[in-house]
């Protein structure tokens, strides 16, 4: 996996990358009303509409930090804080026990 910062445009979208993450931002379908953001390292993605995106523009840096806080979203995960450990297995379906050493 490359950790080199880069930002590459394609016909449909743009990847943004630094040593911590790589995401692809692209228009969905032929209708430019929606944007999809994909985490290229983990394969997850989310589709956002203009109102949702507009909401992000109103967020303060601290609110964006809260949004990124891994204790809620989880680096691997999909569960909220308080979920037990087994619920936090990565998207690649590897068992935590299997990822040692």
């Amino acid at each position: 996996m490359s950790h080199h910062p880069q930002s590459v445009g394609t016909a449909r979208g743009l990847t943004a990358s630094n040593e911590f993450a790589t995401v692809l931002v692209e228009r969905v379908g032929d209708d430019p009303a929606l944007l999809r953001i994909s985490d290229l390292r983990r394969g997850r993605s989310v589709v956002l509409d203009p109102l949702e995106l507009e909401a992000i523009t109103r967020m303060s840096r601290d609110e964006i930090r809260a949004l990124a806080d891994p204790s809620y979203a989880g680096t691997f995960g999909q569960r909220a804080r308080g979920e037990d450990f087994d619920g936090m297995v990565g998207d690649d379906e590897m068992q935590i026990e299997g990822i040692s050493g």
């Binding site: 930090r65 891994p70 804080r81």
Partner: peptide
């Protein structure tokens, strides 16, 4: 934001801890 490669703790670029991954349970 900076993310630790080992267990995913996250920091702001001002050094403040944003959060510990898998904090609960």
């Amino acid at each position: 934001l900076f993310r630790c490669p080992y267990h995913g703790w996250m920091y702001g670029n001002d050094g403040k801890l944003v959060g510990m991954s898998l904090a609960g349970g």
